[in-house]
Design a protein around this nucleic acid. Structure first.
Lengths: 287, 287
DNA sequence: GGTTCCTGCAAATTATTTTCTTGATAAGTT
DNA sequence: AACTTATCAAGAAAATAATTTGCAGGAACC
């Protein structure tokens, strides 16, 4: 696990001096990664040995190990503590957006429920027909994306962003089919209804959404995508990128399930996928 | 710029001993960030002072500064040297995909032409009508995304993935309009034709595409998105994520151009954007 | 009052850098 | 062609700085 999370989790169990150290590191880590143990100790009003002990308690080998861990996680992973771009100068805006996107991926990875995603991939791989639902600019893009990725693997799939169609499709689906729906907020009532309808008919249901949300509760398998609220509201792109990554992981796992040529190297499998996708044309499919 | 790039660029100007050090760092970076100067020197068959001089030559303050830089860039930025996932176990596949996505963002940021993106944003902010073009699953998503993001700012925009419609629209566009098109490969001939048509009629054109490609040459302003070929072919998601980030940057810059309330804090501006987007509903727009 | 644990001091250890020197290479000179 | 000189890489050793360990005082909590 990353050092920042550890620091925040352990904070309660630390002594006074150690908390002071932790706070300095958390607030001004630019200083912390560059400082020597003496400088850091000085700033926290503790002795160098206390800093060493602090590092040990956090599971690091030594102070320099701690700094490496820090620097390593720092590039992404902690910038979300400073949510503002420095200015509206294009370079700063760009950096802000890219960092936040990387962060979303970092947080996604940290909280990813691999078991759930694997269950979902297995279901999709075995489905006779897949219905991908999502509404609004964001989730409908995810549904379309699922279709784009999965039909290339030879699966039967349709995507819909139309609530009425979703209900009708859910009613028409069979237990050998799979219904997969995406909702960033988890509060898409129509999607919940479609899930309920499907479950009555024993149709397997998969949700990509916030855990503990109505949509999550309505689905049989939930792949939780939980990101800090702030990101959702101010910058939908970060969340969307996380969802896209989830779709990509799902599609890759499904691909491996469908073509389980264990003796072939991974690279081969990938190239087959590419060939499968693009035919003889090396140009990226669909531009 | 990042330490890995520096190392590769400077490699030619290094001495024999320094090249040995560089190669060890590049090949076994996990060792390098954890090693002491003595261990690293030992492995490279040089003396510790040579390592110090090596770090200095690369623009670092000291050996520990070098290690911090290394660890910092390493989280992303260098993993593309190891392009294979460790196994097809779900956790490894997930890590691979997420790392590649973060990498794509890293590379995008490194090569981003901020000036071009700013020019593009200015054009878009002043347009009377915007035509967003892109075909195939990937670029059409980008075109749709542009529409989703820009119409919320009060701009007039339409997106099309239909080549015939694109040509007709390009022919109908006026010099006060803007045509923006996306092509991952840069070899979308129909888009080139649309650009040519628009330029004849003095309609400003913006391309999001590979630099030095036919599409790039056809447009007045090109926002280059250059990522290593490998990523493009094997995992379209990485590239797509980079393009999405570009769209996000563009949209944010346009937003700042349109609402230039310099006295208002950035947070306020953002909140206004949110309000603008979502009305009274705090739910994420469009799910 | 005893125990435990935090903490800093000082010493020891270790790591890093500076200085100095040697050796190699290359260009210029006799 | 042989020698000289300049330049620079690179290691040895010394100096310096940083880090860790051992130990003891003291506070807080039984």
């Amino acid at each position: 696990m990353d050092i920042f999370t550890t620091m925040q989790e352990e904070r309660g169990r630390l002594s006074q001096s150690e908390i002071r150290i932790a706070d300095i590191v958390l607030n001004d880590f630019e200083f912390a990664v560059n400082a020597s143990i003496i400088e850091l100790a000085g700033k926290a009003d503790v002795s160098p040995p206390t800093v060493t002990r602090f590092c040990r308690r956090l599971g690091c080998e030594s102070f320099s190990d701690f700094k490496v861990q820090l620097a390593r996680t720092a590039y992404v992973g902690m910038r979300y503590l400073k949510p503002e771009p420095k200015s509206i100068a294009p370079a700063d805006v760009a950096q802000d957006i890219i960092t936040k996107a990387q962060n979303a991926l970092f947080l996604l990875h940290r909280g990813l429920d691999v078991a759930a995603i694997e269950r979902a991939a297995n279901r999709l791989a075995g489905a006779e027909m897949i219905y991908a639902f999502g509404s609004g600019g964001n989730s409908s893009m995810i549904a379309t994306e699922l279709q784009n990725r999965l039909f290339r693997l030879g699966l039967r799939i349709t995507a819909s962003s139309d609530h009425s169609m979703q209900l009708m499709m859910a009613a028409a689906a069979k237990p050998t089919d799979v219904l997969i729906g995406s909702s960033f907020s988890g509060r898409n009532a129509e999607l919940v209804r479609a899930f309920a309808l499907a479950r009555e008919a024993k149709v397997p249901t998969i949700a990509l959404t916030q855990s503990e949300s109505p949509v999550a509760r309505a689905a049989e398998i939930t792949v939780p995508v939980d990101l800090p609220e702030g990101d959702n509201i101010y910058r939908p792109t970060s969340t969307r990128i996380a969802y896209l990554a989830v779709v990509d992981i799902l599609a890759s796992l499904v691909a491996y399930r469908i073509q389980p040529q264990a003796t072939v190297t991974l690279r081969r499998i990938k190239q087959q996928l590419v060939t499968h996708r693009d035919g003889d044309d090396r140009q990226l499919l669909g531009d």
